[in-house]
């Protein structure tokens, strides 16, 4: 971990020295334990504040469409960014959908061992205050006032990391290799498989219970790199699709449409799940689209810059078993 951190710092230092970039987006130490914070740094900032650990959970690609206008002038330099596997997949999606230009990016790729889910660890601490964190290759040691607790990383990874098929970035300018767990990616994901096997009414009940926690802060949308619309349907006023109340009907409507908009785009990075303050299990509903897109169209978002996004193309012999025929 330390080794990789040094490598990142050295690479970024060199990029600034060679005047290749003006700005770099990485992670710095967070103010809370078990958390890091996105770090925007320019040449005069302290490059030594960059960190790399198991809590670098934010998908940094989310900032890219916001800071690079699509028609960027030739003179300005590319934006440097640190990318895990999922961050790079999001970038591929953004490039393919012409939201950004590959030439405007300098990507430091990093093969990712998976991000530890801080909520999973916090739930095991019974609200005890954390004094310090130590991390080695396989485990996290949480220091408490009355001793310490060891957590095996593999058991405490985020759900999306547990079933990640591509921990190594799909596009990069420099790749920093690190340890990657030999994870077995399974499609369809066990959670969606399990959910599908439940009776219909129970499935709806679960969906309803989960989304009824929603307070409509839109953090799931705002944390998602592939939600780049300048004007979201949720905020359109002419026509107004979505009411503003906290009523269940509106919340259900919002979540169904948001997830459908992400179908074929969602790279299953888990950013929405981690951003949600109300702990809605959003992945239970987003993941099914990832699996379905793969099964139906043989497409995995963010893997290659060449293939066309599934909903921007078609095949004459696409399956149509769901179409209604007269009896």
């Amino acid at each position: 971990m330390r080794q990789i951190e040094y490598e990142i710092i050295n690479t970024v230092e060199k990029l600034f020295a060679d005047k290749k970039i003006d700005i770099f987006i990485g992670y710095k130490k967070g103010t809370l334990s078990l958390q890091t914070s996105p770090y925007f740094l320019s040449e005069q900032d302290d490059v030594r504040k960059l960190v790399w650990n198991s809590f670098c959970s934010n998908n940094l690609a989310v900032f890219i469409p916001r800071i690079i206008p699509n028609s960027k002038s030739k003179e300005s330099k590319p934006v440097g960014i640190l990318c895990k596997g999922c961050d790079s997949r999001s970038l591929v999606g953004l490039i393919k959908e012409k939201q950004i230009n590959r030439d405007n990016l300098f990507i430091i790729g990093i093969s990712c061992p998976g991000i530890v889910d801080r909520r999973k660890i916090l739930s095991r601490l019974d609200g005890k205050e954390i004094i310090g964190i130590d991390e080695d290759a396989d485990s996290i040691v949480v220091k408490l006032k009355d001793g310490e607790k060891r957590f095996e990383k593999e058991e405490y990874l985020c759900e999306s990391c547990l079933n990640c098929a591509h921990p190594t970035p799909s596009i990069y300018d420099v790749l920093i290799r690190g340890a990657v767990y030999s994870l077995q990616a399974i499609t369809p994901d066990p959670i969606t498989k399990d959910f599908s096997s439940k009776p219909r009414e129970e499935r709806w009940k679960i969906f309803e219970t989960e989304v009824s926690k929603c307070i409509r802060c839109y953090a799931c949308r705002d944390a998602c790199p592939n939600c780049y619309c300048k004007e979201c349907f949720a905020e359109q006023t002419k026509p107004q699709w979505l009411g503003v109340s906290k009523g269940l009907s509106e919340v259900i409507f919002y979540h169904i449409v948001r997830i459908l908009h992400q179908a074929g785009r969602c790279v299953d990075c888990g950013a929405c799940v981690r951003a949600c303050p109300m702990d809605i299990n959003l992945r239970l509903f987003t993941r099914v689209m990832v699996d379905e897109v793969k099964e139906r169209f043989g497409y995995e978002p963010g893997i290659s810059l060449k293939d066309t996004p599934p909903l921007a193309t078609f095949s004459a012999d696409d399956k149509q078993e769901f179409m209604t025929e007269p009896e």
Partner: peptide
């Protein structure tokens, strides 16, 4: 196709 699958999945 995706929509049909998703609505069915939700219940």
């Amino acid at each position: 196709a995706l929509m049909k699958k998703f609505l069915d999945y939700l219940g």
